[in-house]
Design a protein around this nucleic acid. Sequence first.
RNA 1: GUCUCCUUCGUCUAGGGGUCUAGGACACCGCCCUUUCACGGCGGCAACACGGGUUCAAAUCCCGUAGGAGAUGCCA
Length: 465
Amino acid sequence: MSVVVRFAPSPTGVLHIGSVRTALFNWLFARHHGGKFLLRIEDTDRLRSTAENARSILEILNWLELDWDGEPVVQSSRIERHKEVANELVRSGKAFYCTCSPEELAVKKEAAIKAGKSHKYDGKCREQVVRPFENAVIRLRAETCGVTILDDLVQERVSTENAQLDDLVLLRSDETPTYMLSVVVDDHDMGVTHVLRGDDHLTNTFRQIQIYKACGWDIPQFGHIPLIYGPDGAKLSKRHGAASAQDYMQLGYLPEAIFNYLLRLGWSHGDSEIISRSEAVEWFDITGVGKSPARFDMAKLQNLNAHYMKMKDDQAIFECMSPFLETEESITDSQKNDILRGMKSLKGRSRTLVDLAESAKIYISAPKVFDDACSKYATNEHLSLLQDFVNIVEAADNLQESSMLEATKILASERSVKLVEIAQAVRGALCGKLASPSVFEIIEIIGKSETIARVRSFIKKYSTI
RNA sequence: GUCUCCUUCGUCUAGGGGUCUAGGACACCGCCCUUUCACGGCGGCAACACGGGUUCAAAUCCCGUAGGAGAUGCCA
């Protein structure tokens, strides 16, 4: 089977995460079948389309490594072709000029709604095939009887009475093509064999099939993918915290996690949850996509993200994390080296790159603020323990994690306290909070003088209170 | 309003007439591990929207009802 699919975003805003999933499914379908994945920028809405939006769409596709074949097609460059097709349809009697004004139609529509009737176009200009002097649109002469059947790859057999369809506008009065026309013409000219898109287009498809038929073109296969909703069941939007791919990028998610999460949203392969790119390409099948809409679950995304962070090697995860480090100056090689040494523990307890960057700060500088909970480990007793601890560190000729742990255990037993009392106090002093990797690992990495400095500063801070 | 579609644990889903006292994952709860928080291990809670059919047998097929979504633009 020869396969040509396309992803056709409009650069009128940021890329919605649902569109990213549509792109992903198209890419997987193409790669699975050894076909082509084309890209088309639908910028015919000149007012709202921007080059910046187009650029950021490409950036997201690159980020997710959804590589496309050939150069992207820019829809606005094809307007002459769209006009040509519309005019040809008039010549062949499949379309006609309509001079009804938008105002006139609005009045009719309102009256029809009031009367509780269907408010489709009434066909007033149907016999007008000669071009009137001005302000005419071109409408398709739609079928008025029979049934249009769509054997959708996802939704299966869907049909509608042609009487429901109306004479849609193909070319506007300013001679620009409508979406309905341009999408059909472009898909045909690009040789698209399978149209995989959001199911908000499902009912549009019946109209588009009519255009294909009027043109005498082969009709591609369609697959309508359910939309993604927010946790409350309404369409996912900014209101839910994050809706665009850029949002998730900024929240510190790895492309691998987004890829895996989006793939499993509405599609499955038995009990597989962690699915690699190559497995996805091998297993993906459009007919396996579910028909019902899915809700976006941030917790599951976080879980996957944590998994992929753990899997990634330390150097690579450091590169991913560094944009999230909010440091005034760029970090030194020695700081970078410390973070790398502690990375295994750091990444194992982070869910996002933002978390990771936050926790990595312990290797950049002494804590600037201390969580309130730290004061629980800053009693006179604790400060005294910390002083003893400083003495041990000073005297130690070996700061290895295991030996410091042993030395501290001895101190605990000498002072008749539990190890946790000392460890937590030290943690507070070193990190400013009570959750971190092993304090003894941190000590080994930051070294003797930094450890002593941080603990002394902690003692000083809390003794004066 | 009209048309089209959707409906299995809180969420994502497996399931395609008997193997379902409905499986997995996330979340949640408990236990273990443990210097904290996590990780990890073990265990637990939790669903076939409702009502009718068809059938020896229905989560699976059919019809209604309810709820939800989309379309109904000279937007895409």
